[in-house]
Design a protein around this nucleic acid. Structure first.
Lengths: 250, 250
DNA sequence: GTCGCATATTCTGTATACATCCTGCACTCA
DNA sequence: TGAGTGCAGGATGTATACAGAATATGCGAC
């Protein structure tokens, strides 16, 4: 199947959603800017019906905000909003870890997580860490978090975590690439990996409070990276999510 | 403005959403049942375009589930899902209380909360408590929780709390009316009110951990009520949300 | 020069027609 | 008898036309 067929195979609604999301995250649509449906039609090349569906979905996703009189505008976030979203994710992931620990998980279901842990170990063991390794870390890290959340065996909780993590600046890997430009890069990765190890251990030993606490702290690494990167004003291009920052805070 | 005009003034989309939500919560549409757009058109009396929007919104709300091949079905929940949703709400409200406590709130912004607390005090002081008082408690309790969440001053957090509380069985007042049929009714209300008092005190004294812990525990009252009501199988009609329970768990 | 109002344009909300895809049933062949 | 296939019916995805509302613009009056 070539690319053209692949594009054909997804619905117009999804295609519009992807195109608009890309425009927003790349900063071509600025925070606070109104998006008219006709404009969205021009951008995406599909008709108003799927465009409207895509706009509603993006509102739900948190990237757009409904205007009372009708229509949508690109949502603007403060630095505080971003930090709160990260804390929020940490809290939810902490709850997931606690559920997993308190309710107990079978040795069998813990296996994929341990394999993932080992893969991450190999990646962070490199010194210095290549950009490719950073990129691989992002993928594997996302997998680790997903597996961990699933261990909670709680559909409502997983749903909310996915929702919060969908905000581009709140996902577990949002600022990992930004780290790669920092001198402390390797150390931060090692600390994060230690958190991973601890949470698995805590779940295995059914230490709910410990599992919860370490996941909360883990999310604060992202907050720390964000602050460092903003202070240094360097390599902002590694964090496309910051296109959503209110201009006053930039 | 009479009722007919009021109905006219809201959009067809909202009207369809309300009508369908009512059908779902009243149990006339059963969990697992597919809702076709044409069927929804018949129910609501509006055309397919707004019906489709309403279906998408109900999906985000969590009442419907998208079918991979297209269309929607009424979501079914297990008792565990409901308990987890309550714990989830408690965790988020706990985070809100902690934010309020740690960041500090002005005496002025704490006033409405204290007034609300006093109003609730008056209601629970009655013995025995009338059904009208229970109903007033539900309203005032919702107001208390809303005010409390606002004190977090965190838009992303408030957004998530509202979202989770939109599930009919996860809201702070979901099972208060069910309490009214229990012999322990009064005692449970008094305990809940004590939680309210403690959280306000903790916020005032900037005791973040205490504020968080008490809000978590507070949500467990709802879980306790739910379990009691289900065990007693009595007055299930006071909890319309249970129409969403998987039939196997009924 | 500025404020207010009227008009014109543009946008959203809604309805409906059409095409494509899925689903279920019956029939046929092994 | 069971499994697979083809067809019919219906459902969803999409495009577009139309009506009403909101907004912007320009003109006139103070």
């Amino acid at each position: 199947m070539n690319e053209r067929d692949a594009e054909r195979s997804v619905s117009q609604t999804v295609r519009a959603q992807l195109a608009l999301r890309d425009m927003i995250l790349s900063g071509r649509l600025r925070p606070g800017e109104r998006i008219s449906e006709l404009q969205a039609v021009d951008i995406t090349g599909v008709s108003r019906t799927p465009v409207r569906l895509a706009l509603v979905r993006l509102e739900d996703e948190g990237l757009l905000q409904a205007i009372p009189s009708g229509g949508f505008m690109v949502k603007a976030f403060t630095e505080r909003d971003i930090l709160d979203s990260i804390e929020l994710r940490g809290t939810l992931e902490g709850l997931a870890a606690r559920f997993a620990a308190e309710r107990g998980v079978s040795a069998r279901s813990l296996e994929p997580l341990k394999e993932c842990l080992a893969d991450l170990d190999q990646l962070v063991r490199q010194d210095p860490i290549s950009v490719e390794a950073f990129s691989a870390y992002v993928t594997m890290n996302a997998r680790f978090h997903a597996l961990l959340n699933e261990l909670s065996a709680s559909a409502p909780l997983i749903r909310e975590i996915d929702r919060v993590s969908a905000l581009p600046f709140a996902s577990p890997s949002a600022f990992v690439m930004a780290q790669s430009a920092l001198p402390e890069a390797h150390q931060i990765l090692l600390i994060g990996q230690d958190h991973h190890r601890i949470v698995v251990d805590a779940i295995e030993n059914r230490e709910g409070a410990r599992a919860e606490a370490v996941m909360r702290e883990h999310s604060r690494l992202a907050a720390r990276n964000l602050r460092l990167a903003i202070r240094n004003r360097t390599h902002l291009e590694l964090m496309p999510a910051l296109a959503l920052l209110k201009s006053s805070a930039e």
